[in-house]
């Protein structure tokens, strides 16, 4: 039982960051109809920017996190403006190929810039874990969970409570009609891509200090994000949030009670089941189209 509770706690913390990764990816897909293969690279970008701020510019830890999110937003916006806007209305395959190119270019740029040796990010939280009975958790991980929850809640408010969010949802439902109603589609696309990339960079900045930072770190992260998005249904915000938590807990329990060698296989086994049984995702509403 003690072990079970610890697994659930680990899974929740891990799932929070999976959700953060999945939300960015699902928004970009839902609103822009772009399969963002470079999503993992924005995660890596966030981690390296945090490292840059802390180790080289020696700023405050929290400032570094903000800097990382800003770097994701900025590069995301540039990427959308330069590469995706000219392709507006092209087939999904074309933009997918472009994003695969961005993925390869960004990963190799990181390798050139930082070298292949993993970097470690210092953080101001105490090393000894907090304990509650048999449960044990590092303060840093609690902070990561808290920050992830805040970011997810903030995103939810942005999409459901603001004018901009309403315009995003309108674009999601029908791009042409939204344009006819006076929504600036170009602007919505830039904002969406920048926002999604910012969330990915945020996830990288939060997890960088927990793990180690290296150029290929985005690949497994992007894979998880795709699992989350398929679990929750393409373009489904709430689905991505729940999908992230489910994946985190399923991986933990799979590794804990089935076999740790198959930990990553658990996520993909779930995907296969979901695609067979509920191809539009676990949380797809009947009336949603696209």
């Amino acid at each position: 039982m003690e072990e079970f509770l610890q697994h659930i706690l680990n899974g929740l913390i891990l799932g929070g960051t999976y959700a953060l990764l999945g939300i960015g990816l699902t928004l970009i897909f839902g609103i822009m109809n772009v399969v963002n293969f470079a999503h993992g690279e924005f995660y890596t970008l966030g981690a390296y920017t945090t490292f840059l701020f802390l180790a080289l510019l020696e700023t405050n830890f929290f400032l570094a996190l903000l800097g990382a999110v800003a770097s994701g937003i900025l590069l995301g916006a540039i990427c959308e403006r330069l590469l995706l806007r000219p392709l507006l209305g092209e087939s999904i395959d074309t933009t997918m190929l472009v994003m695969i190119g961005v993925w390869i270019a960004m990963q190799n740029a990181e390798l050139t810039l930082w070298g292949g040796v993993a970097k470690s990010i210092d953080h101001p939280f105490p090393q000894p874990p907090l304990t509650l009975g048999p449960l044990s958790v590092a303060p840093l991980r609690l902070f990561v969970l808290g920050a992830a929850v805040l970011l997810i809640a903030g995103s939810h408010l942005l999409i459901h409570r603001t004018r901009l969010g309403r315009a995003m949802r309108a674009t999601f439902q029908d791009r042409e009609t939204a344009a006819l109603m006076g929504v600036d589609i170009h602007r919505i696309h830039t904002v969406t891509f920048a926002f999604g990339s910012g969330l990915a960079a945020g996830a990288g900045a939060l997890l960088g200090p927990v793990f180690v930072v290296y150029p290929a770190m985005g690949d497994p992260a992007a894979l998880k994000a795709f699992v989350v998005v398929i679990l929750g249904g393409l373009g489904n915000f709430a689905g991505a949030t729940l999908g992230g938590l489910i994946l985190g807990i399923a991986e933990e329990l799979g590794a804990g009670y089935i076999s740790s060698g198959y930990r990553d296989a658990v996520g993909f086994a779930i995907i296969i089941l979901v695609l067979l049984l509920r191809p539009s995702g676990l949380f797809a509403r009947a009336e949603r189209v696209g």
Binding site: E3, Q6, H7, A216, E252, S260
Partner: peptide, 20 residues
């Protein structure tokens, strides 16, 4: 006897199990 993937970064499940 626990295993982890080469690129895995989170080993908390394995550690929880070993702790027991």
């Amino acid at each position: 006897v626990e295993f982890m993937e080469q690129a895995a970064t989170d080993m908390s499940a394995q550690i929880t199990k070993i702790r027991g």
